[in-house]
């Protein structure tokens, strides 16, 4: 009856080669986009890479050749400022050719700095924070009405959790027992002015979600095996929504900006762009030899 009913590919298998190759390529694409005239949200996209690569290469029932296929799982990037991370993962996964990302930020390009549904694989426009989880409640309710096991993953920033609408949705989802709804928190601990805990503190974060009726999993957000295990175990309880608190590092992959507030947005000229790309490749080689 709806565009989302039907069959979907199985979740849990790994589609692709060694994970490190994919995460390297995604990070290179992010750096390239930050080298565009308008720049991009570097730090919060780099922290997302393993989360999104795991979701798109293993967890989500999606088909890059048919992004609107019926029965697919839904991913909403509620922290819309991570758009270049999402675009890079979608391109690297084959939703559209990587070369198209060269148009990022160009006049009339579909690649705006916040997710644009004109890009294949992008489900909803996000960017104003606190919108994704309420939308996810709607997607999960629709799945329930359809008797479908399709899931909705909502990727949130940690600073975003200061928006009240997140907790309106969290309360409703817990109360309604929406087992098909999954929140993934990119817990990189930083927002624009500094640490989240110095702005408006989020801790005890796991307890807060638990008290709203959610199953909580905490995981190293840069460990793909750990992320896969966490995502594959969802839902632990069919009648409870799940939150995966993914502990990450803002700017991950570029040690000279990792964990630094200034990584939030970057407009990379040629020299820093080259430096970033060579740093990423050196790290990859080092890890491959280890």
């Amino acid at each position: 009856m709806t565009e989302l009913t039907g069959t979907a590919p199985a979740a849990g298998a790994w589609h692709g080669g060694p994970p490190a190759e994919h995460t390297l390529r995604v990070r290179e694409l992010i750096v390239e986009m930050c080298g565009s005239a308008g720049g991009g949200h570097l730090g919060g996209s780099m922290s997302l890479v393993e989360i999104l690569v795991t979701l798109y290469r293993s967890t989500l029932r999606v088909d890059p050749r048919a992004p609107d296929a019926p029965g697919r799982d839904i991913l909403l990037l509620s922290k819309g400022h991570g758009a270049i991370g999402l675009y890079a993962v979608l391109a690297e996964r084959g939703f559209f050719p990587e070369e198209e990302l060269a148009a990022y930020g160009q006049p009339d390009s579909p690649f705006s700095a916040h997710p644009n549904p004109a890009v294949p694989g992008v489900e909803m426009p996000t960017g104003s924070l606190g919108h994704g989880l309420p939308q996810g409640v709607g997607f999960a309710l629709a799945a329930r009405f359809d008797n479908s096991d399709r899931r909705c993953f909502v990727v949130l920033g940690d600073g975003e959790l200061q928006e009240g609408s997140v907790w309106e949705a969290a309360m409703a989802a817990g109360s309604l027992g929406l087992g098909g709804l999954v929140a993934v928190v990119d817990r990189n601990t930083l927002q624009i002015t500094g640490p989240t805990e110095d702005a408006v503190g989020l801790e005890p974060l796991a307890d807060r979600w638990r008290s709203f009726g959610w199953t909580v999993r905490e995981v190293d957000g840069h460990d793909i095996d750990a992320l896969r295990a966490a995502f594959d175990a969802i839902p632990a309880d069919a009648d409870r929504p799940t939150v995966v608190i993914a502990h990450t590092v803002k700017g991950r992959g570029l040690p000279y900006i990792e964990g630094q507030t200034r990584s939030h947005f970057a407009r990379l000229t040629e020299r820093p762009k080259k430096r970033a790309l060579s740093t990423l490749r050196a790290q990859y080689r080092k890890a491959a030899q280890a």
């Binding site: 709806t2 489900e123 989880l133 996810g136 949705a169 409703a172």
Partner: peptide, 28 residues
Amino acid sequence: AERYVNLGIAEQNLMGAAAGLARSGRTP
């Protein structure tokens, strides 16, 4: 009756959830 849902006193969530339902083929 199963398609009546009280989302409580929370209008932002109300509108967002309506969008998710509508995007899934429903008419909320």
